[in-house]
Design a protein around this nucleic acid. Sequence first.
DNA 1: TCTAGATAAATCGCATACGATATAATCGCG
DNA 2: CGCGATTATATCGTATGCGATTTATCTAGA
Lengths: 143, 143
Amino acid sequence: MSLAPPDMLCFALHSAAHAVHAAYAPLLQPLGLTYPQYLVLTSLAVRDGQSVSDLGNELRLESNTLTPMLKRMQAEGWVTRTRDTVDERLVRLSLTAEGHALAARATGVPRAFAERTGLTLDQIADLRDVLAVLRDRLKPARP
Amino acid sequence: MSLAPPDMLCFALHSAAHAVHAAYAPLLQPLGLTYPQYLVLTSLAVRDGQSVSDLGNELRLESNTLTPMLKRMQAEGWVTRTRDTVDERLVRLSLTAEGHALAARATGVPRAFAERTGLTLDQIADLRDVLAVLRDRLKPARP
DNA sequence: TCTAGATAAATCGCATACGATATAATCGCG
DNA sequence: CGCGATTATATCGTATGCGATTTATCTAGA
């Protein structure tokens, strides 16, 4: 006898992640951003000049996902991609002025989302930390 | 100033869901299953004869996602898709003998995963329930 | 020094996901 | 009864994600 999906942690995670994605979409669509692009923009707004693999390590994504996404964001005029002059294997990422402006416009999005969840800020922080522990146990980030 | 992704609940969920997906992959690959296909198989093993929208309501997926996936699973010989004779808009889904055999082989997968998480069964159940509440608050299933 | 191995991005193919739309079947209201 | 609205799938286009591979660059050891 097998467990049905509603009884499985993996499915709860899978479906909750999609629900969060869907909840963010209407907040991000007016900005022209997809949800993963929003994460990239936010990461670069905090730390400029990251390489593709720095960003991938933070977001747990591979170059095969990031490269096409970054090219789309470059085409939108939000991001620049330049080879590192010292180590030419690295591609350094920076936000343009438009990128920074967009990140500023997106600042309020997490708060709007937090309100939609109906959870307190403490509950949100606790859940976030439990999930981070689970994730890092399953798939540690590079040191 | 914006929050960085590691501080955001949405990112914790996003990345934990991907980590779970990645942890399931090596368990499912020997069976020839992808992770969403595993959820479909499990759902049909518990309740046979569901329509596409029944299944979509349980898994929170739309026909535009399910139809191609179900066709692939039909091509593998695991699932049959037949129009309901009473209401011909409905497509009824059933597992074949191979489908049932595969579901039986997959029974041990959640336990193997649970061990990988390092969480107790109570912790897993609690986390699952919190995530289900969050999901249903953001995107309720049809009644 | 010079090359074998490691590393960083990029490319390719495939499987989700979803918004928008199309099509077919059924329902409901006058 | 008849037709517009609704419902259930399916189709199309686009954006992730990832496994496997490729290319370019760098590093380390004989």
